[in-house]
């Protein structure tokens, strides 16, 4: 996979959730250009082309969407969101918060930091599958990304 043509960056520390998410996207043929990173540090390295992604890709080839979990060790989703949204080079990348948390302060805070969408992953499989399918379609096919 060409690291400069990534469409989806999935940031998720829970590998079970990650597997389910990727599986649903694959079902609809949307996971071909997907990169999965397991923590906030890696996510930032990817987005800003630093650390282990230094030299492998260029910052201006942004993913079409970042699916971001909140609860993560070390650098959590909120910090990742804040860094991306406060840098003019990455500010335009759509960020979808994909989390189990229904807590309202998280929702409010995410939008304040510039999240483009906030999705609570349902426990039941049908709901979850539907949600992933919809968001994939929307951000990859319907939404017009910044050029």
């Amino acid at each position: 996979m060409n690291p400069n043509s990534v469409e989806i960056l999935l940031v998720e520390d829970n590998i079970t959730d990650a597997e389910l998410t990727i599986r649903e996207l694959k079902k609809h043929n949307m996971a071909n250009n997907l990169v999965h990173v397991k923590n906030g540090e890696e996510a930032l390295d990817f987005v800003f082309a630093t650390g282990k992604f230094a030299g492998t890709r260029e910052i201006q080839y942004a993913p079409k969407v970042i699916l971001l979990d909140i609860q993560m060790p070390k650098i959590n989703g909120m910090e990742v969101l804040q860094k991306i949204k406060s840098d003019p080079r990455t500010r335009a990348i759509p960020v979808v918060i994909l989390t189990s948390s229904k807590e309202s302060p998280d929702i409010q805070k995410s939008y304040d930091l510039g999240a483009n969408s906030y999705i609570v992953k349902p426990v039941n499989f049908e709901g979850f599958a539907q949600a992933i399918k919809n968001l994939g379609f929307y951000w990859l096919l319907i939404n017009q990304p910044p050029s």
């Binding site: 079970t16 909140i70 189990s100 807590e103 349902p122």
Partner: peptide, 9 residues
């Protein structure tokens, strides 16, 4: 809210 729901899913 967060941690218990994830394993169920």
């Amino acid at each position: 809210s967060h941690d218990l729901r994830a394993p169920l899913r």
